[in-house]
């Protein structure tokens, strides 16, 4: 089952980037690292919040993945949340949004 999920993840992520010129083909572990480390710069590595809001499953409860993906891609006016559309594709933003709502995966230890 886990293997299937992982395969599905890889399949989703290798879809062509239909938005975001230059959105790189990041693998799932690379995306997890990006969220934990780089989104984590503001939201905290544990995603419990910092200058940015908490992004834990509890904090995001009730939000739709579509709405979250829009915020990831286009940023949020009047806040420090930047648009990530130059770095992430729509598929990648959706993938991140769905994982956030389900409780974001931990990074594998190096």
């Amino acid at each position: 089952m886990r293997v299937c999920t992982k395969l599905a993840m890889l399949f989703i992520l290798s879809l062509p980037a239909w938005s975001g010129v230059g959105a790189a083909e990041l693998t799932a572990p690379e995306l997890i690292r990006l969220v934990r480390q780089d989104c984590g710069a503001c939201h905290g590595m544990t995603l419990k919040g910092g200058l940015g809001k908490p992004l834990t499953r509890e904090a995001l409860a009730g939000q739709s993945p579509e709405a979250l993906a829009v915020i990831i891609l286009h940023g949020k006016q009047g806040t420090a949340m930047p648009p990530w559309k130059s770095l992430l594709s729509e598929a990648q933003a959706h993938w991140i949004a769905e994982r956030l709502l389900a409780g974001f995966p931990e990074e594998p230890q190096p």
Binding site: D38, A41, C42, A80, P82, W84, S86
Partner: peptide, 8 residues
């Protein structure tokens, strides 16, 4: 217009 700020 500001460029996106990915880190403070």
């Amino acid at each position: 217009e500001k460029l996106p700020v990915f880190k403070m």
